[in-house]
């Protein structure tokens, strides 16, 4: 099946073959056709493959597999399989409320790569700590969880807008929208990963895994 990754590998392979020709017979560049070959092989194709490569890696960085590829995130991956409906990430993951392939990114859209400049720097620091340092225990968010991460899906849903608790006060919805009232740090939806409680949990076994 011809996928973007297949196309990228083909471009890279073609580029390498053409460059090999130039390395073995650099005298071909004496001709007009050889000059064009060199231009395409050394400039155009590498830039195109580099661009596609960056795009591919950026797409991969949104995947659950990518996030959980670091050992320190292992327990967070396990927490998605907790067999308890009160655990918000688990409920979202197990019921397909977030795409399983991008479960982490869907709820943490401003983390490292996808955050501001400081967040990106923190991402680099995480790689450094992963190999040369000691990850913080427990891991904590650098900033309070932004309600935007909940509202980008829930904001227009009837169950959210008409919920009795959400409409208890006339301005409660507006307060949640403006982060004056947190979805997760109040007593309402504060059961999230709880990796320190994993040993006491039972886990849902995902089909095929």
């Amino acid at each position: 099946m011809f996928t973007p990754i297949t196309a990228l590998i083909a471009i890279i392979a073609l580029s390498i073959v053409l460059i090999a020709i130039l390395i073995i017979h650099p005298s071909v560049t004496a001709t007009r056709g050889g000059k064009i070959l060199a231009f395409v092989a050394i400039l155009i194709l590498p830039i195109v493959s580099g661009g596609f490569g960056v795009s591919e890696h950026l797409q991969r960085s949104k995947t659950t597999e990518f996030c959980l590829s670091c050992h320190v995130m292992e327990d967070y991956g396990k927490s998605l399989h907790i067999d308890d409906k009160s655990f918000i990430p688990a409920v979202h993951y197990q019921n397909g409320l977030v795409p399983r392939e991008q479960a982490c990114f869907t709820c943490h859209t401003d983390y490292t790569m996808y955050g501001d400049f400081n967040a990106k720097l923190r991402g680099l620091k995480h790689v450094y700590v992963q190999y040369l340092g000691k990850p913080a225990q427990p891991i904590k968010l650098y900033q309070p969880y932004n309600n935007r991460e909940c509202l980008h899906c829930h904001q227009n849903s009837r169950s959210y807008l008409e919920n009795e608790t959400h409409t208890k006060e006339p301005d409660r919805l507006e307060k949640m929208k403006t982060n004056q009232l947190s979805c997760s740090t109040t007593d309402c939806h504060n059961i999230v990963h709880r990796v320190d409680q994993l040993k006491d949990q039972t886990f849902w076994k995902e089909a095929g895994k």
Binding site: I9, I12, A13, S15, I16, I19, G53, S61, S69, C70
Partner: peptide
């Protein structure tokens, strides 16, 4: 390009 090709087989921040 070979480095790029190698990294495509690996889904990891590194």
């Amino acid at each position: 390009l070979l480095v790029e090709l190698t990294t495509l087989h690996w889904s990891h921040p590194t």
